[in-house]
Design a binder for these strands. Structure first.
Lengths: 197, 197
DNA sequence: TTGCAAAGCGGACCGTCGGTCCGTATTGTT
DNA sequence: AACAATACGGACCGACGGTCCGCTTTGCAA
């Protein structure tokens, strides 16, 4: 047992910080201008507390991100098809990417903050490996594909937070149109030809 | 004529900075740890000079990046097919992406620095629009594709600097293998089916 | 050649930000 | 009630991007 239950005030403050940070990242122009001091102040907490609870900026963002992503990961692992297991692989790939796109659309500030987290983001993050491995596995079940490894990376790159932000934010591409575009593109990669004239 | 030819010392210093920065970005672990002060020192120049010549960090990186990219853009615009105009669109798309991939492979530090340039990079950079427009145009000539707009974005995302760095650097994927993977993927998007068993 | 204004130089300086430190306050256990 | 153990929070630090301004260089023109 390396687990030690946290003290009551610690838990309370952690929750306060999480909530405050979430709010700040949600309605900010750019994640860059949410400072750690801002978060601490908004949570009514000292900076020391903030850093002790999350280590550093990256830790905070990751904690937030993972908390938000968790429902989706549950749906992916144990939910009903096509997102959950059991669907035809083509449909599932499509569903996975669509879910990811929607997530980034709904959590723009947060996703941007995570991917803007210096270093070689987002490829250093734990959850990237996770999604990549999953997508790769599902792709392997699609007949007639080689190099699922790279294809998985490339498909994930198509829903990267800053691209999504660029399209949805700067250009004003509406949500449903983006989803349709992504679905179309995915189908092309999968060889599910859209059969155009 | 708003052009005023620069003084001799100004030109010399500008060149010195460019060279020094190029060297520093080329052999650094991460672009983050090349500071402006480092560049100035390496160029044997004061920080004031550095900032006057390039405005800010982004300006410097862009100047470097564009200088390096220029030969490729010339080859694309006026060179021989398949990179230059005239080739069958499928082959040209493939050649364009391959050229971009090789460029990022050869200029990892620089490309990383540019894309790590805060804000909504790389989508704010002039040259991104340029490449996107070009790719889009060529894609339009490929029969049976819808949404060239999005497809162009998605294909460009597959050669983003940090993905390339992740694959070539962290994982040790060799250059030729990456090129093959990209070519394969591109072919799939274009509907040039590789016809596997 | 000399004079002189415009252009350029460079490093001390500034504001901000992520992150640390440590004296003080809170918890919960005996 | 007493006392560890744990957590608090804001003063503090080092680094970095960027600015400022007194001094030097340049090059034109007399």
């Amino acid at each position: 047992m390396t687990e030690r239950k946290p003290r009551k005030d610690a838990a309370r403050n952690r929750a306060a910080v999480l909530a405050a940070a979430d709010a700040l990242f949600t309605d900010c122009e750019s994640p860059e201008d949410v400072t750690m001091a801002d978060v601490a102040a908004a949570a009514g907490v000292g900076k020391g507390t903030l850093f002790r609870a999350f280590g550093d900026r990256v830790g905070l963002v990751k904690a937030l991100y993972e908390a938000r992503l968790e429902p989706i990961e549950r749906a992916v692992e144990t939910g009903p098809p096509p997102l959950g297991p059991g669907a035809e692989p083509q449909r599932r790939v499509s569903a996975l990417l669509d879910a990811l796109l929607c997530f980034k659309l709904d959590n723009r500030g947060l996703a941007l903050a995570l991917e803007a987290t210096g270093q070689d983001s987002p490829y250093g993050a734990r959850h990237y490996e996770h999604w990549h491995a999953l997508l790769r596995t599902v792709l392997e079940e699609v007949p007639g594909l080689g190099d699922e490894e790279f294809a998985a990376h490339a498909l994930l790159a198509a829903v990267r937070a800053d691209l999504v932000e660029h399209l949805a934010g700067r250009s004003g591409v509406p949500r449903e149109r983006m989803r349709a575009q992504l679905a179309d593109y995915t189908a092309r990669v999968l060889g599910t030809a859209p059969a155009r004239t």
